[in-house]
Simulated assay, not measured.
Amino acid sequence: MIFKKTLLGVACVAAFSTNVAHADYPNRDIRVIVPAAAGGGTDAIVRKITNIAEESMPVSMYVENVAGGMTATGLLQLMQARPDGQTIAAITYDSIITIPWKEMLPGFNMDKMRMIARITREADAITVPKDSSYQTLDDFISAAKEESGSIRVGIQNMGARTHLTLLQLQDLTGAKFKIVSYDSSAATQKEALLNGEVDAVVTSLGDLAPLIESGQARGLVEFSDTQNEGFPNVPPVTETNTDLDLQMGSFITLVAPERTPDDVIEKLEKTYHTAYESDDFQQWLKKVGVTPAWLGSEEVTEWSHDTQEQLFNTMDELVDKGVLEK
């Protein structure tokens, strides 16, 4: 009986200590993992909103870039972190779609993390150098048909989102491109576009905003059904080609390790939502041409599962056609 009472006492003390820790959250600096290299659009957005969120926190919030494996390296660090809200991550398309579909992390699925909120949504786009002869998407596709395999298009990793976007464009139009793969950061695509390694790149307009704003590059089309207010000269695909039903892009979602307590998730969601709604962040998003697209914890969890199911089906169909390899 003494032994049983001792165990019960230990359990009660542990539970009390945990509750105190949650009530006192956060009590030390919060690490925010960005599973991509510095310099890309995801890095810039996460740093901006985190800097604003930090203003209402009693501790520092610091962003750390953990690149590699199409975000798998950063995801692994998140999964290994204690579920106390002191380590969170900003994930993108690859974490929810590419990695589980390709089974790059054995045993990984969305149940290994808890969704805090979705911040933004960005459509993929085709961008060319300022002196490119391609003025429209139709020009680009026509040239690719006439010179099959000669037009070099830079993407971020074979099998990743931008690769899937380009494969679908080929499948829907009959065009054939020479696909050049870079790492998961848009920074390398920028360099390739500027030094002439490629004729175009597929990524979001926000990733290349500095080049477009400076006149060093031009957006041909955005794979969206709405006009991007930040880039009024870049038409959505539904306006450019009404027969081309291709809408693809990424998003930024904040997540925490599984088993992170509800009250900690709520605290993080509220803090980031306040930062999201600030004039500072909203005006900055408009300036860089990124679409604000907030979804709270429950909404983004449902949305992520629905999106994953839809894109898994699309990718499986492309595999059956021999267009994509798993």
Rank of each mutant, 00 (worst) to 15 (best):
V66P: 07
M70H: 05
T71G: 09
A72W: 06
T73S: 14
G74H: 05
G74Y: 04
Q77Y: 06
L78V: 06
M79G: 01
M79S: 02
A81S: 05
A81W: 00
A81C: 00
R82K: 14
G85Y: 02
G85D: 00
G85R: 01
Q86N: 13
T87N: 04
T87Y: 03
A90W: 09
I96E: 09
I97A: 10
T98V: 05
I99Q: 10
K102D: 05
K102I: 02
E103M: 08
P106Y: 07
F108M: 02
N109A: 06
M110V: 07
D111C: 03
R114G: 09
R118H: 08
R118Q: 15
I119Y: 04
T120G: 02
T120E: 03
D124F: 12
A125T: 04
A125L: 04
I126C: 01
I126V: 14
S132H: 07
S133F: 03
Y134K: 06
Y134A: 11
Q135D: 12
T136V: 05
T136N: 02
D139C: 02
I141T: 07
K145P: 06
E147D: 15
E147K: 15
S148P: 08
S148V: 08
G149M: 10
I151C: 11
I151E: 11
V153P: 13
I155M: 06
I155E: 03
G159D: 02
R161E: 15
R161A: 14
T162Q: 10
L166Q: 10
L166S: 08
L166P: 13
L167F: 00
L167A: 12
L167C: 04
Q170T: 10
Q170Y: 01
Y182T: 02
S185V: 04
S185M: 03
A186N: 04
A186S: 15
